[in-house]
Design a protein around this nucleic acid. Structure first.
Length: 530
RNA sequence: GGGCGCGUAGCUCAAUUGGCAGAGCAACUGACUCUUAAUCAGUAGGUUGUAGGUUCGACUCCUACCGCGCUCACCA
């Protein structure tokens, strides 16, 4: 029998003994007067004498995270909301049965205690327990271990293990959350981030809505969708890759300021920045353009950085080859440059002279740039038949993206890769579109929304040609969307913000799996029945 | 999907050229009525990811598979 099975058996046996003491094994509720955080917040500054003079009675519940038995007395630490408080259990105080119960408790059990606050001889705020109530048993051993190592020979250099098996951490996030307090912190920060975005948008009169997750045409982005099937209607539906086209239908319908924070699903690879389902904020504002929503997005993110971290500067640990490099991201200081400027600015020396603006103008000159770039560098894959704009975007990603550490707005994107954006009035090959980069990641995308139905139809048709060329991610035709635009959509700016990636940046998390509670993993292999 | 790397006790990690699979903590038994992730004495814990192969002998070498990580491609 494996160890954890043995422990499971042993603890079930203990549970029976606990019942025999008159405790319920799985009681339905516990009335408490305090929480551990409230006790710590309210009494941390009080001295032992003060606590003795004005005795404070408390009833509080928590999970046992450390327990020490010493004959006829003992200590334990109980945890609630990620915070710990010590309890002191003395046989004289809790009685025969109470102490029998204490002796049957294990690491990980939930208990409720009532008693009064005091300070131990060493000064730690603790509860002098008068009554213990059993609340729930932990039948499986928590992976709490310790190892004593002489860290750098430092005196008393104790280094406590943490649960570091990433597979177990992601598969059994509940265990990760119990054992690793900093994991809890990351998700609390993520919650604050989402709250902050909502508050900022609500304060500006935006209305939060929910649009379909299951769509007959997966539109609004360039990506491969997941397919599912509805039995009664007997139709295939796609999990949405973006809410964009539905939100703009709502702008047509008169919601001038509208937003949604919800999941998108894209059937693509998994990596440090990619999870098949991810959370996106999208918002649309009528009567403004890409400039207006660019300013607003910067404000939203600056405020979010404040709300999550208390300031506008955050640490980001990057890698330079083998070495770790700590960057300080400044969310109140935004750089802006056009895509073409960025390519020129970050043009690698090995690729010779920097491009001129005119080099982006024709298919031949763009091809020439790629050839020059590829000479000294990682290969930029491109199809000679693809539109020049698409090649320029690939060039930008290869030349510039990795260098975009500080929050930076890159604007003016090729029309060929922006089927839903308005063109620049003076340069129809370019659109009024921007993306925000930070920590070498794209985190937001916004533009002046294309609202001319005829132009939109032509853009979709151009995408269909890409599709025929073999690009199965190119946008599909959406007749109803064109019909909606035909009723007249006011001029508007729209934005999508990658919430997971923003959470990564604000918590110095280097994989998206550390900011998603249950990231997609391959299912566990089923153990053979014996 | 391609390439590279990893998988040893519940957790964190050792194991010399291929030569008896170990430690700390957790667990169990006992002692201890102010401990600090207590201390002391003792006990138990393993098909070394799985299945094959090479060998007198495999944690170690080879092959396949499973899982995870990094990376490239596709993408946000």
């Amino acid at each position: 029998m494996a160890l954890d099975e043995k422990i499971h058996e042993l603890r079930r046996e203990k549970l029976k003994q606990i019942e025999a003491l008159g405790q319920k094994s799985y009681p339905t509720q516990y009335d408490f007067t305090h929480t551990i955080p409230s006790i710590l917040a309210g009494n941390s500054s009080k001295s032992g004498e003060e606590l003795e003079a004005n005795r404070i009675s408390v009833r509080v519940a928590g999970r046992i995270m450390a327990i020490r038995l010493m004959g006829k007395a003992g200590f334990a630490h109980i945890q609630q909301d990620g915070q710990r408080l010590q309890i002191y259990v003395k046989k004289d105080a809790v009685g025969e049965k109470g102490f029998e119960l204490y002796k049957l408790l294990d690491l990980g059990d939930h208990i409720g205690v009532s008693g009064y606050l005091f300070r131990t001889r060493t000064g730690e705020l603790s509860i002098h327990v008068e009554e213990i109530t059993f609340l729930s048993k932990d039948l499986l051993p928590l992976p709490i271990g310790k190892s004593v190592e002489s860290d750098d020979g430092q005196e008393g250099g104790k280094k406590w293990n943490e649960l570091s098996d990433v597979e177990l951490r992601y598969r059994q996030r509940y265990v990760d959350l119990i054992v690793n307090p900093e994991v809890r912190e990351v998700f609390l920060k993520r919650s604050k981030l989402v709250q902050s975005l909502r508050r900022s948008l609500d304060a500006r009169g935006f209305v939060e809505v929910e649009t379909p997750m299951m769509q007959p045409i997966a539109g609004g982005a360039v990506a491969r969708p997941f397919v599912t099937h509805h039995n009664t209607l007997d139709i295939d539906l796609y999990l949405r890759i973006a809410p964009e086209l539905y939100l703009k239908r709502l702008v047509v319908g008169g919601f001038d300021r509208v937003y949604e924070i919800n999941r998108n699903f894209r059937n693509e690879g998994i990596g440090w920045r990619w999870n098949p389902e991810f959370t996106m904020l999208e918002f649309y504002q009528a009567y403004t353009n890409f400039q207006g929503v660019m300013d607003l997005t910067q404000e939203l993110i600056t405020q979010a950085a404040r709300d999550v971290t208390g300031g506008t500067k955050t640490k980001w640990t990057g890698k330079d080859g083998e070495n770790e490099v700590v960057h300080e991201l400044d969310w109140a200081n935004w750089q802006r440059m056009t895509m073409r400027e960025a390519i020129i600015h970050f043009w690698p020396e090995a690729a010779g002279a920097k491009p001129e603006m005119s080099d982006f103008a024709s298919t031949d000159s763009v091809k020439n740039l790629v050839q020059r770039f590829n000479k000294g560098h990682a290969h930029v894959a491109y199809d000679p038949k693809e539109p020049a704009g698409k090649t320029i975007a690939a060039l930008f990603e290869a030349a510039a993206e990795a260098h975009l550490m500080q929050p930076t707005v890159i604007y003016e994107f090729p029309t060929a890769i922006s089927p839903l954006s308005k063109q620049k009035p003076d340069e129809p090959d370019w659109t009024e579109r921007w993306e925000i980069y930070a920590g070498s990641m794209e985190i937001a995308n916004g533009f002046s929304e294309l609202n001319d139905p005829e132009d939109q139809r032509q853009r979709f048709e151009a995408q269909l040609k890409e599709r025929e060329r073999g690009d199965d991610e190119a946008h599909q035709m959406d007749e109803d969307y064109i019909r909606a635009l035909s009723y007249g959509m006011p001029p508007a700016g729209g934005v999508g913000v990658g919430v997971d990636r923003l959470a990564m940046l604000l918590t110095d998390s280097h994989t998206i799996r550390d900011v998603i509670l249950f990231p997609v993993l391959r299912p566990e292999e089923k153990k053979e029945e014996k």
